[in-house]
Simulated assay, not measured.
Amino acid sequence: MGGTFDPIHTGHLIAAETARDCCGLDEVWFIPTSGPPLKDNGPAVPAESRLEMVRAAINDNPAFTCSDIELKRGGVSYSIDTVKELTSLYPQHAFFYIIGSDRINDLPRWHAVEELAALVFFIGLERPSEKADVAALPRFLKERLIAAEMPAIGISSTALRKQLREGRSVRYLLPEAVHQLIRRHGWYGTRGDD
C-alpha cells in the first residue's frame, strides 16, 4: 500500500485491514512515497517524518510492516519501479497493490501500467460514496482488479492538515501515537510540545 501518508490516518489503517481481511493477505506493507507522480504538489512534511508516523501508526498490528524502499530511491516514485525491485528482492512473494476508488479510475494513466498489471493484482477498495468506473478500464486492468468494499470513512490527509493548522481536534481520526508525534514536532502548523 503506497501513499504519501501525509499524515497517515485511521482511514489508511482501515483500508489496509479491509484489504488484508477480504483478500486473505499475510501482510500489508506500507510504502511511503518520496514524490507521487499523479499529484501536483509534494508532501507537507519531510520523508523521514512521514516514515516515523507510519511506523508509529502500525506498531500494534503484527500483520502490518513498513518499507522505506521508495524513500531510499528518492525522486518521483513510479509503482512499476517499486514492484520490480520488490519482486527481485522477494521472488517467493506474490504482491498485490492496494488502491482506493480514486486511483482505480486513474490506473490507465499510471506509468508502464501494462507491465505493472502483469506483475501484481490490484485490490481496489471502493468507497460507497465514490464508485470506480471499472467498466471504463481496459480489459487487461479489469482482469487484474479485485474489488473490495471499503467502509464509509470520510477522512482525508488534506482535511486533517487543515484541521491541525486551525488547531481543531483530530482525535480518533489519527492514531494517538501519530497525533503525539505531530504535536511534539510541530508538524502541519501545530505548536509543538518541545
Rank of each mutant, 00 (worst) to 15 (best):
E130G: 03
E130K: 02
T82V: 01
G75P: 12
Y90C: 01
E143G: 10
F122H: 02
D194C: 13
P91H: 12
L89T: 03
S77E: 13
I153Y: 00
R103H: 06
L51T: 06
E27Q: 08
T18Q: 00
G186K: 06
G3T: 15
L38Q: 11
A136Y: 00
P138I: 05
L51I: 09
R184V: 08
A44M: 14
E85K: 11
E17T: 14
E114R: 14
P62R: 08
N59K: 15
C66E: 01
H179L: 13
E115Y: 07
I123L: 04
P128V: 02
P62C: 12
S88F: 09
V134D: 06
A118Q: 14
H185L: 03
R144P: 11
G35M: 15
S169R: 06
R20W: 06
L119V: 00
E115P: 09
L119T: 00
A57S: 09
Q92K: 15
S101A: 11
W187F: 15
P151C: 11
L51K: 12
V45G: 04
F5G: 08
S77V: 08
V113Y: 03
S157I: 07
I146D: 03
G189I: 10
D60I: 08
I58M: 11
R183L: 15
L38G: 06
V76I: 13
K72Q: 13
E166Y: 04
L145W: 05
L141Y: 12
E70L: 05
S49V: 13
G3V: 13
Y78R: 07
A112K: 14
P32Q: 07
D102N: 07
T190R: 13
T65Y: 09
L51V: 10
T4C: 12
R50T: 01
T18N: 02
T65C: 13
P37A: 03
I98R: 07
K39D: 10
Y188M: 15
K39M: 12
F96P: 00
F5H: 06
P32L: 09
V113T: 03
P151V: 11
D6S: 07
P32E: 08
K72V: 08
